[in-house]
Amino acid sequence: MGWLNRIFDMVTPGGEPETIEAPPPDDPSGPAQAYSVPKAPEDPSTPPERLGLNGEYDQSGLAKRVALALDQNPDTDDFERLWVAQTGGTVVLKGEVPSQDDLDRVVNVASGVYGATGVNTDEVTITG
Rank of each mutant, 00 (worst) to 15 (best):
V91R: 06
G88T: 12
K94L: 12
D77S: 11
V91A: 02
D58H: 01
R105W: 13
P47L: 06
E56Y: 00
P44H: 09
K39E: 14
V66T: 04
D101N: 08
D43Q: 11
V84M: 04
P98F: 07
Y57H: 13
P38W: 06
F79H: 12
E49M: 04
A85I: 02
A40N: 13
V106D: 07
N54A: 11
V109S: 14
L103S: 11
Q33L: 15
E56C: 00
A63M: 02
E96V: 01
Q59M: 09
L93G: 08
R65A: 08
D104G: 03
W83H: 12
D104M: 05
R81L: 12
S45I: 03
R81G: 02
P41Q: 03
D104L: 02
G89R: 08
S99Y: 10
E42Q: 13
P74M: 14
D102T: 07
V37S: 08
D78H: 13
R50Y: 07
L68D: 10
D102E: 08
E80G: 10
P47I: 06
G89V: 04
A34I: 01
E56G: 00
K64E: 12
A63L: 02
R50V: 00
T76W: 10
G88L: 09
V37M: 09
A69R: 01
R65K: 07
Q72K: 12
G88P: 10
L51E: 02
D75R: 09
L62C: 05
R105M: 15
D102S: 15
Q72P: 00
R50K: 14
G55E: 09
Y57G: 00
L82S: 11
L51N: 04
R81Q: 11
Q59E: 14
G61N: 02
Q100M: 04
A69K: 02
E96Y: 10
A69L: 03
L68R: 10
R65T: 04
V66M: 01
G88F: 09
P48K: 13
Y35H: 14
G61Q: 03
P47T: 11
D77Y: 08
A32C: 03
L70R: 07
A34L: 12
D104E: 15
D77F: 07
P38E: 07
P44S: 06
K94W: 03
P38Y: 06
S36P: 06
E80R: 10
G89A: 10
L51S: 05
Q86F: 05
D78G: 05
G89L: 06
E56S: 01
V106A: 09
L103Q: 08
P41M: 05
S45Y: 00
G88N: 13
K64Y: 10
V66G: 06
D77G: 02
V91D: 05
R105A: 15
T90Y: 08
K39D: 12
A40C: 04
V97K: 04
E96K: 12
L51V: 05
